[in-house]
């Protein structure tokens, strides 16, 4: 207890997942998941299918309420979505408004925050530049590739100016090259802001490459199996980082944890 308080003083928790459990009727999906996120952290969450990764993320976003325990943002309990917590869904083709252009989709988040229309163009231009979509501002989602559509969703989430950005396997449906490019762009965006990132993935290498910390979940019911620090130098590099012996060591460790069952 004392130890937790000391940590709070050193690096205050932004998001606090407290003994979260979830059941659907008689099925237990998650049991006693407990961890805290410190400001500016980049946390990857990995786990086998059925470990409740997505359910956990939805609870953190306030989209579902846990059956037991709670999720707290700073000093308040999350029961409904919070403006400081943004989420990027995996299925970009469903999460974007097909009837709005790229610009319009980003503007939706600004409209939600009631930002004056006169400020929209400058803010949108800045967001477009950060995610590399300037050339596509007036295209409709259906005219864009998957990678570009996912960038739109990220830009919309950033337009919320969130303190925490939750991402649910955002690159899972993309091809390998696009995926690596987006990983590096995401790291750049992260280092330019102080946003806390939570990144769900089933790709172990992606989890290590991106994160400062990896939370490993095991399934049936979902619970925390390990909480691993990743001390790899930043900025990371697609070749050298992945060849680093510490990278490989963590990869071994994760592989062991996830194939143990």
């Amino acid at each position: 207890m004392l130890f937790e308080n000391v940590l709070d003083v050193l690096a205050p928790a932004v998001l606090d997942v407290r003994h979260v459990g979830m059941r659907y009727e008689s099925r237990e999906v998650m049991r006693d998941i407990h961890f805290a996120l410190t400001a500016g952290d980049f946390v990857s969450i990995v786990g086998p299918s059925g470990c409740g990764k997505t359910t956990l993320l939805r609870a953190m976003a306030g989209l579902t309420e846990p059956t037991s325990g709670s999720v707290r943002f700073k000093d308040r309990e999350i029961r409904e979505p919070q403006s400081e917590v943004a989420i990027v869904f995996q299925d970009y083709n469903r999460a974007l408004l097909p009837w709005r252009t790229v610009r319009g989709n980003i503007a939706l988040a600004l409209e939600a925050r009631r930002i004056a229309r006169s400020e929209h163009p400058a803010r949108i231009a800045d967001l477009l530049r950060r995610v590399g979509l300037t050339r596509h501002a007036d295209h409709y989602p259906a005219q864009l590739s998957g990678g570009l559509q996912q960038r739109v969703q990220i830009a919309r989430a950033l337009a919320q100016e969130p303190q925490v950005l939750l991402m649910d396997e955002p690159f899972g449906a993309l091809d390998a090259i696009t995926r690596q490019r987006l990983q590096d762009e995401l790291l750049e965006i992260w280092s330019a802001t102080s946003t806390t990132m939570v990144f769900i993935t089933h790709d172990l290498e992606e989890a290590i490459y991106l994160g400062n910390r990896i939370i490993v979940l095991e399934a049936n019911p979902g619970r925390v199996a390990a909480d691993i620090r990743v001390d790899l130098a930043r900025p990371r590099h697609q070749l050298t980082t992945r060849e680093d012996s510490r990278f490989l060591a963590i990869r071994h460790q994760l592989f062991g944890l996830l194939s143990a069952e």
Partner: peptide
């Protein structure tokens, strides 16, 4: 309506 868009609307607090 696409259920995902209802969630987008909730997370943006429209």
């Amino acid at each position: 309506i696409e259920p995902r868009l209802k969630e987008v609307s909730r997370t943006l607090q429209l």
